[in-house]
């Protein structure tokens, strides 16, 4: 096949995917092993194996992305390759949306169906009468249906919407603006501004994560935990996975910042930057959903 300019770039065989699979296997096997002392290899609470796997994955990511960046900078990718990457990223983000949808769905189900059912709604009069007599549903659910039987802590405080969460909303929305400013700067070829706005975005992102961490500490100290019934479960799982995604997004943007400082990207050709920016907007939109459904309503 002639590698005439304009033809689709087909990478040569690569060792990175297999390394990635091995790393993933070691990481997850290690994590699962650490969860119980009845499982093989490592004892309960021992995370060594998991860290080894993580290290391999990080090594793989550096190697793989490094190679992609070299190929990209050497001009191997034509417009059609660029479109493949774009589609790849778009559909990846769609899959992430569906992952969050599962948790939002769970929240919806619990709030509008199962908790009222425990209180006797719909066809569940008998449930309330015979199993949870005297229980009235509420949201946040801070008294568990059988709190009397023990097992779940009762907590007094829930997280209000208009303190840190509102501030965090402002932070993330602002960061959406700064990342767009960075994009404009890139399109204009203004590298200084690009780096600056990227830096601002990353800082906003990490401040967000910091506030979130502060909020978690506060919640735990007042007794709202992951194990505080379904309110705690949905609250921490949704905000926790979101926080994880903010962190990943911020790391992606940091990489873009260093790359822009190194002189990567042109005003025409900067897909990696755009991918990170899309991801950032996705994280932003998920937060709006969280703010409304977890905090405000």
């Amino acid at each position: 096949m002639s590698q005439a300019s304009g033809s689709y770039y087909l990478p040569e065989p690569s060792k990175w995917p297999v390394i990635g699979s091995i790393g993933m296997f070691i990481m997850l096997f290690g994590f699962a092993s650490s969860l119980s002392d009845k499982t093989p290899l490592v004892g309960e609470g021992n995370l060594t194996m998991m860290y080894v796997g993580m290290a391999i994955i990080i090594f793989m990511l550096f190697g793989w992305f490094g190679q992609v960046i070299r190929e990209s900078e050497s001009g191997a990718y034509n417009g059609q390759v660029d479109i493949s990457f774009r589609m790849g990223m778009m559909w990846f983000i769609f899959s992430e949306v569906m992952f969050f949808a599962a948790f939002f769905g769970a929240l919806y189900y619990i709030r509008t169906l199962s908790v009222p059912w425990l209180g006797g709604a719909d066809n569940n009069a008998a449930t309330n009468e015979f199993l949870y007599n005297g229980f009235t549903p509420s949201w946040p659910l801070n008294v568990m249906p059988d709190a009397a039987a023990g097992g779940y802590s009762v907590f007094k405080e829930t997280i209000g919407a208009w303190g840190i969460p509102a501030l965090n909303t402002a932070l993330l929305l602002t960061s959406g603006v700064t990342v767009t400013l960075a994009h404009w700067a890139l399109k204009k070829g203004n590298r200084g501004a690009l780096t600056f706005w990227l830096f601002a975005t990353v800082v906003l992102g990490f401040v967000f994560v910091g506030f979130q961490a502060y909020e978690y500490i506060h919640a735990y100290s007042t007794g709202l935990k992951l194990s505080s019934g379904v309110y705690g479960s949905t609250f921490f799982m949704l905000t926790g996975f979101h926080g994880l995604h903010v962190t990943i997004g911020a790391i992606m943007l940091t990489v873009m910042m260093f790359r822009s400082m190194k002189g990567h990207f042109t005003d025409e050709n900067h897909f990696a930057f755009e991918a990170a920016a899309w991801y950032w907007h996705f994280v932003d939109v998920v937060w709006l959903g969280l703010f409304i459904f977890v905090y405000v309503l």
């Binding site: 059912w117 425990l118 066809n123 569940n124 008998a126 449930t127 015979f130 199993l131 249906p145």
Partner: peptide, 9 residues
């Protein structure tokens, strides 16, 4: 179905 924690009729 007999569900733990819920009563069906």
């Amino acid at each position: 179905d007999a569900l733990p924690g819920y009563i069906n009729e």
